[in-house]
Simulated scan of single mutants.
Amino acid sequence: MARGAGEVGAPRFDALFQQLNREVVRYIEQGDGSGGASSAGSTGAALSPEGAWGRQQALSSLTAGGIAGAEDLNGVGEAERQAFIDEVLPLARGAGAKLGVAPEVLTAQAALETGWGRSPLRAADGASSHNYFGIKATGTWQGGVVQAMTTEIEGGAPVARSEAFRAYASPAQSFDDLARLVGGNPRYQGALNAGTDARAYGQALQRGGYATDPAYADKLARIAARVQGAAK
Rank of each mutant, 00 (worst) to 15 (best):
P171H: 12
L121V: 11
G6S: 05
Y216R: 11
L62I: 05
V105N: 01
S42C: 00
D213A: 13
S174Y: 08
A70M: 06
T63G: 10
A194K: 04
R161M: 11
A15W: 13
F133T: 07
Y210R: 11
G65F: 07
S42M: 00
D218W: 03
A204N: 10
R3E: 12
P90Y: 04
G144K: 05
E87T: 14
G77M: 01
L99H: 14
Q19Y: 13
K232A: 15
A164P: 06
N74C: 03
I223W: 08
I85R: 06
K232V: 15
Q30D: 01
A2C: 01
A179C: 10
G134Q: 02
A58C: 02
E87L: 08
S170R: 12
S128H: 05
A46W: 10
L178M: 13
L112Y: 12
V101Y: 02
A179S: 15
S174A: 13
A217R: 04
E78T: 09
Y168H: 06
A127Q: 14
R187F: 06
P214V: 00
D32T: 04
A110M: 05
T114P: 05
T114A: 02
G184T: 10
R222C: 15
L91I: 06
G184Q: 01
A92I: 07
Q147W: 13
L181D: 09
G75H: 07
A40K: 14
E23I: 01
G195F: 11
R207M: 03
V76F: 06
G44E: 14
R187V: 10
G183F: 08
P186W: 00
M149K: 07
R122W: 00
A79N: 13
I28Q: 01
R161V: 00
S38V: 06
F165H: 13
G202T: 11
Y168D: 02
P186G: 02
N131Y: 10
N21E: 12
A37E: 13
K232R: 11
E50L: 14
N74S: 06
Y201I: 11
A169W: 03
A211D: 11
R55A: 09
S119E: 07
E7L: 10
A15G: 08
A172H: 05
A52W: 08
M1V: 10
A37H: 04
T151F: 08
T138W: 08
A58N: 10
T43H: 01
T212Y: 04
A46T: 15
